[in-house]
C-alpha cells in the first residue's frame, strides 16, 4: 500500500476514544497526526495540574474541560481531522449512541469501574467492533513488559501487571508508550480491514 492510499483510507475512518486523560489525549493526538478523518472524544472531567505529568494539555489550560480542550489542541496539530466532542459521563446507556459510527473504539479510562463498563458494553452492543484497551501503565522502566494481547476483537495494550498506587504513579513515558501502542493497534485494524 502506498502512503497516498494509506492517507486516503485513514481519512475515511472514524475512531472513538472513551476518556481524554493520559491514554486518551495522547492516543487522539497520534491518530490526528496520521490523518484519521474523524475522532469522537468523550470525557466529563476538568484539567488539573496533576494531569500535566502525562496528559496532552498545557499549563494555561488548567481548569478547562478535557474533551473541549483536546479538540482545541488537536485542531492546532491537524485542523483537517474532524473532532466530535462528547462532554458526558459515559455509561452503559449512552456508550452505544456516542460510539455507534466509530470503526474502532479506544478504552482510555483511568478507573476500573469505567473500564469494566465500556468493555462490557462494547462486547454486548457492538460484537463486531474492535475495542483497544490500555491495561497496566503505572510506574517507570520495564520497557520489555509492555505488550499487546489480542482476544479476538478486544485488544489489550499494556503490561497487564502494574496498577497505579502511591508508589506506582502514572507517568508520561509509560502512559505515552501504551497510548501510542493503542493508536498503533488502531492503525493496524483500520488498514487491514477490507470492506
Amino acid at each position: 500500500m502506498r502512503f497516498s492510499q494509506i492517507k486516503q483510507i485513514l481519512k475515511s475512518k472514524t475512531v472513538g476514544i472513551a476518556g481524554c486523560g493520559g491514554l486518551g489525549s495522547n492516543c487522539a493526538v497520534a491518530l490526528a497526526r496520521v490523518g484519521v478523518g474523524t475522532i469522537v472524544i468523550a470525557d466529563f472531567d476538568i484539567i488539573e495540574e496533576s494531569n500535566l505529568n502525562r496528559q496532552y494539555y498545557f499549563w494555561d489550560q488548567i481548569g478547562k474541560p478535557k474533551a473541549n480542550t483536546l479538540k482545541t489542541n488537536i485542531e492546532r496539530i491537524n485542523p483537517k481531522t474532524k473532532v466530535i466532542v462528547q462532554n458526558v459521563f459515559l455509561t452503559e446507556e449512552n456508550v452505544p449512541e456516542v460510539f455507534k459510527n466509530c470503526d474502532v473504539i479506544v478504552e482510555a479510562f483511568d478507573k476500573t469501574d469505567a473500564k469494566e463498563m465500556i468493555i462490557k458494553t462494547v462486547i454486548k452492543t457492538f460484537p463486531d467492533k474492535y475495542l483497544v484497551c490500555g491495561i497496566g501503565i503505572a510506574g517507570w522502566g520495564k520497557n520489555n513488559e509492555i505488550k499487546e494481547q489480542k482476544y479476538d476483537k478486544v485488544i489489550v495494550c499494556g503490561d497487564e501487571k502494574n496498577e497505579i498506587s502511591e508508589n506506582n504513579p502514572p507517568l508520561a513515558p509509560r502512559v505515552g508508550i501504551v497510548s501510542n501502542m493503542q493508536a498503533n493497534a488502531v492503525l493496524e485494524i483500520l488498514l487491514n480491514e477490507k470492506k
Partner: peptide, 12 residues
C-alpha cells in the same frame, strides 16, 4: 472453548 479472563487495573 476459548475463555478470556481479563484482570482490570486502574490507570490511564
Amino acid at each position: 472453548d476459548n475463555l478470556m479472563i481479563l484482570h482490570l487495573l486502574a490507570g490511564g
